[in-house]
């Protein structure tokens, strides 16, 4: 019978593209999403190349220019103790970009892994994982971060990313679990099982793509949320500590001066808005690319 199939030597063009290629193609065809991605890249460039473009360092204090308006010397002006706003903003942008994206990816990834496993395997796996989730939910996360983060100073704010991620995934995990429970009963999952596909591969290939819309929305919300919770922590003296800055701390410092010395506030705030907006556009594009029935993306 093998011969019967092989014997049909039909001339075959290029092999059909797999899902990854198809999704990528759909994504690239989406103008707005592509725009969002470009903006993200530009933000990264600004954050990591910007510090080399200016002669000021983010912590240097220029006593000759206190509260100076934007000009040739200080491009985006200075703050009330004479630090260069541009240098500070790009420094802060570095932190916030990394914190926002890493926390979002980390927490959504953890949520989808735990939720999908709990839903798919059921039984004791489910019970144990959900117990863990409930436990973390009732933990006062702020308190824990407050206690733990001063001890992690050596590893710096990367530890903060870990901590923020660790306390942001539980509700998402519960939702993913319930979505997995209903997906598990669908015939295509059963079909995959009878083909001998392993459980983790089923989760990866069948379950997660089908909850992707939710995960992407969740992740884009997490980005903004992470930047904000980092700010809150920093405000209380944990997280990013002076003289180091993040967009959050800059915004917090500049709020009071927003009307009188707008440059202290609006550059940082504007960049945060642009950042979150770009992430949202990319997220929308990704969702449309993954969802074949969406009206947003053409094939």
């Amino acid at each position: 019978m093998t011969t019967a199939v092989i014997a049909e030597e039909a001339p075959v063009a290029a092999p059909p593209a797999g899902r990854a290629t198809v999704v990528l193609r759909r994504f690239l065809r989406n103008r707005t999403a592509l725009g969002g991605a470009v903006v993200l890249v530009l933000l990264f460039l600004l954050a990591f190349v910007g510090p080399y473009a200016t002669k000021w360092s983010y912590s240097h204090i220029d006593y000759t220019a206190l509260r100076a308006a934007p000009g040739a010397d200080h491009w985006w002006g200075t703050n009330r103790i004479g630090q260069d706003v541009f240098a500070q903003t790009v420094r802060g942008l570095q932190k916030s970009l990394v914190i926002g994206l890493l926390v979002a990816v980390l927490s959504t990834g953890l949520a989808s892994l735990v939720g999908a496993c709990a839903g798919y395997f059921g039984g004791w796996t489910d019970r144990l994982l959900m117990f863990l989730v409930d436990l973390l939910l009732v933990f006062p996360s702020f308190l824990i971060i407050a206690i733990v983060s001063p001890r992690l100073n050596s590893s710096g704010w990367f530890a903060l990313v870990g901590l923020l991620g660790l306390f942001a995934w539980m509700i998402t995990a519960r939702v993913v679990r319930s979505m997995t429970l209903s997906l598990k009963e669908r015939e295509f999952v059963r079909a995959a099982r009878y083909m001998g596909v392993g459980p983790f591969r089923i989760i990866w290939r069948h379950v997660l793509p089908n909850v992707a819309s939710f995960l992407i929305i969740d992740a884009t919300i997490q980005v903004g949320g992470a930047v904000m919770s980092e700010t809150a922590l920093s405000y209380f003296g944990f997280g990013v500590q002076p003289p180091d800055v993040s967009l959050g701390t800059l915004i917090a410092d500049g709020t009071s001066a927003a009307v009188t010395y707008p440059w202290m506030f609006f550059f940082a705030a504007g960049l945060l808005v642009v950042f979150v907006l770009a992430v949202n556009l990319v997220g929308d594009g990704l969702r449309d690319a993954l969802d074949p029935t969406s009206k947003g993306a053409s094939r």
Binding site: G18, R19, A192, M195, G196, R205, P292
Partner: peptide
Amino acid sequence: ASLDPRMPVGDIVAEP
């Protein structure tokens, strides 16, 4: 119901 709605049919056929 038995075909994953989020998979191109080429991938579906290739899965086994």
